[in-house]
Simulated scan of single mutants.
Amino acid sequence: MTVTDYVSVPVRLDFDAIAPGFSRAVSALDDAATAELDRVGIEPAVREVVRLRASQLNGCSYCVDMHARAARAAGVSAQRVDAVAVWVESGLFTERERAALDFTEQVTMMATTKVPEQSVRGVVAAFGEEGAAALLSLVIAINTWNAIGVATRCWPTAVRREG
């Protein structure tokens, strides 16, 4: 398949240009979440796996591409990046990562899941209360980015030549 064989997905709204103040506010929200993660020492690999899983669940092509690459850059093996979508069935994730991924899924799908107590207890046991709050901040931020990306398609996925 050549680059010219790819399908162009049209942008619906140039959100950053149309709502620049809100876009900056979401960026500040993301920066605040990252600062919380830094403060409690949650490593970049866990952060990117969480961002990737939420983006997969929300169907944000741009964010899936970005956070899969960021996860690999943070030291997550290609095999583990590929397995994020099926983490429940995969033995490639630690108990701590599994708690973060479960919590990510429960919060991302909260309209259905109502974020069960067991998920909250699991993430608190793995990361402590401050770590759980930092992860919640991250999940809220990535879900916000995903909502913008999916609704507007304002950030097309960049096509990179393989090889």
Rank of each mutant, 00 (worst) to 15 (best):
H67N: 10
H67W: 13
H67Y: 12
A68M: 07
R69I: 09
R69Y: 04
A70R: 15
A70S: 13
R72D: 04
A73P: 04
G75Y: 15
S77I: 03
A78V: 05
R80A: 12
R80G: 01
V84D: 11
A85R: 15
V86K: 12
W87Y: 13
W87V: 10
W87G: 05
E89K: 15
E89N: 13
S90K: 10
S90E: 05
S90P: 03
G91C: 04
G91E: 01
L92V: 07
L92Q: 14
T94I: 00
E95A: 14
E95P: 02
E97N: 04
A99G: 08
A100M: 03
D102P: 02
D102T: 12
D102A: 05
F103T: 00
F103D: 01
E105F: 10
E105A: 13
V107H: 07
T108I: 11
T108K: 10
M109Q: 13
M110G: 01
A111F: 12
T112V: 14
T113I: 01
T113P: 03
K114N: 08
K114S: 06
V115S: 06
P116R: 15
P116H: 15
E117C: 07
E117H: 14
E117M: 14
Q118H: 11
V120G: 02
V120M: 10
R121E: 10
R121F: 05
A125C: 01
A125H: 08
A126E: 03
F127A: 09
G128W: 10
G128A: 09
G128L: 10
G128Y: 11
A133R: 15
A133M: 11
A133S: 13
L135D: 00
L135N: 02
L136C: 12
S137C: 10
S137L: 03
L138T: 05
L138F: 09
L138H: 09
A141Q: 08
I142E: 06
N143G: 07
T144F: 09
T144Q: 11
T144R: 06
N146I: 04
A147Q: 12
A147R: 15
A147P: 01
V150L: 10
V150P: 07
V150G: 01
V150E: 12
V150Y: 12
A151M: 12
A151Y: 07
T152Y: 04
T152W: 08
C154S: 15
W155N: 11
W155Q: 14
V159E: 09
V159M: 11
R160N: 08
R160G: 03
R161T: 05
